[in-house]
Amino acid sequence: MTKTSFSIGGVQFPNRVLVASGTFGYGDECSSLVDVNKLGAIITKSLSMNPREGNPPTRIVETPSGMLNSIGLANIGVERFITEKLPFLETIQCPVIVNIAASTVDEYCAVLDVLEEHSRFDGYEINVSCPNVKEGGLSFGTDRVMTAEITRRLRPRTKRPLIMKLTPNVAFISEFARAVEAEGADAISAVNTLIGMAVDVQKRKPVLSTVTGGLSGPAIKPVALAKVYEASRAVKIPVIGIGGIRTATDAIEFLMVGATAVQVGTMNFVDPSAGVTIAEGIQAFCEEHGIPDTGDLVGSLDARVDSSVLTSWL
């Protein structure tokens, strides 16, 4: 039997396939379609202090092998999450990581403080791809100093794993990875969506109400792999690979380039049991190749040229 479990910051996960924030609701919605206890963990939709209504329509559009979204972090807010969703989460065994989004550093702290009062949660993933209202709406996540600052402020408030979720919309993700590692983050999730756009030529209008949105799905996998490769080589803490994972083979690619675990996002919309199928597929691959531990795949890439991601193809 292949060993599938692993741990981050002292928390044990039954396998290396987690479901990504914003693509699995708060966990309860999919429970009639998939045995959530077979997932490595559920990462909940980003929560802010107060409920957020989200952006006006149109919020989503399909693109070749992917989709663009501008949901606008629509969520029920941390208080309703505790009263409405915690009771279900208490009934399941799989780890639950709560994702937090905020428009100020203080708000990140406040949401985490509320969650700290409940023992059910196994860790936090911090979505820094949010507009920073104090800086005129510029994303925290593209500002290395702010990303580090959020980590520094949150770190002393919890002993639970603190996972910083990085955006790919920066030149060098390795710099951001190093910055959050230095501030005590337990792990990094990479990547969030890529900035993208679609145009309706009949109307001469952008399809999304916000003009640009976040690209996800199989279309982004090559970009995500390169970012995960770059980040995981820059830090010692685990990197959780995300972006376009559809099959077990996709997930194994991420493990090989250096991801300790992976998250499945957009594919949950197509098949809510994709995460479980992929976890089983990784295990089958290991058994087939006589690999005793799925962890043996991590960073096992045989890259003959040890070149920098930034120059190797120039």
Binding site: T23, G25, K45, P57, R59, I60, A74, T266, F269
Partner: peptide, 11 residues
């Protein structure tokens, strides 16, 4: 996208 309330894509 999802059709059952998890993506928040259909306001």
């Amino acid at each position: 996208a999802c059709g059952f309330g998890i993506c928040q894509g259909c306001p």
